[in-house]
Design a protein around this nucleic acid. Sequence first.
DNA 1: TCTACTGTATTATCCGTATTAGTACAGTTG
DNA 2: CAACTGTACTAATACGGATAATACAGTAGA
Lengths: 127, 127
Amino acid sequence: MYQIDAMSRTPVYEQIADMTEKLVLSGVLKPNDMLPSVRSLSAELKTNPNTVQKAFTELDFRGIVRTVPGRGCFIRPDVFDALKKRAAAKLAELCRLCREIRAAGVPLEDITTEINKIYNGGEENGL
Amino acid sequence: MYQIDAMSRTPVYEQIADMTEKLVLSGVLKPNDMLPSVRSLSAELKTNPNTVQKAFTELDFRGIVRTVPGRGCFIRPDVFDALKKRAAAKLAELCRLCREIRAAGVPLEDITTEINKIYNGGEENGL
DNA sequence: TCTACTGTATTATCCGTATTAGTACAGTTG
DNA sequence: CAACTGTACTAATACGGATAATACAGTAGA
């Protein structure tokens, strides 16, 4: 279910968190589903339990999961609200970048054509 | 000419580099102009000469300046080509973000309306 | 040539943060 | 009580950023 690239520059705990988020987006993980335990997942990924825990803490911070001591880590019932907020934050970041690009003198058309390509281009969803 | 925010989370050397780039974009610095010397600028900004040197090295890497040992650090004659390449790189980064946002289920219209706001909104250029 | 400027290189130290790890503790369930 | 769950604490390591002191090398002008 999970797959980690140890050679990536993105930290392992972040890979786990991002992957979990995408598993929700793709419907593999649904609200109230329980995630693998800290120990089982760390064994599967051959990492330290604390690394997995940090991923869970990150997911908790993002509003994706709710962890219950002694019971486990569960996808929040309102996970899609959290995902919407995350998307909004990414959109804000995109706007920040866009202002920089505008300041660099790039015309609006250059941006819109690229974005249209992305939205028209095929069915790949990048998950 | 230069102004540094020591409390910012962006490193001083990066602030210097970014500011220099913007001074070119706004026409304050022109091709072949000489930048302040490492020592004078570090004195002015109350930083270490090495910090300024790192900024100059960064600007060299970006293709903004050409430093000549013994003479000084000068805005490259072809600086605007470098700026175009930098803008293209930023556009690529924007596209990467855009794919993420699309994967999160955000409709194309949400993005285009935000971007149109930025390009129609006033004359502020963020420099 | 001498002098005063320019950038460059080297080495070291300090600080803060990120990442991973080891170990022990605490809550829950049957 | 046993076996599972998450949690806290500490430590080792690495990295990035900034500072500092020094020394070196190229350039330009008096």
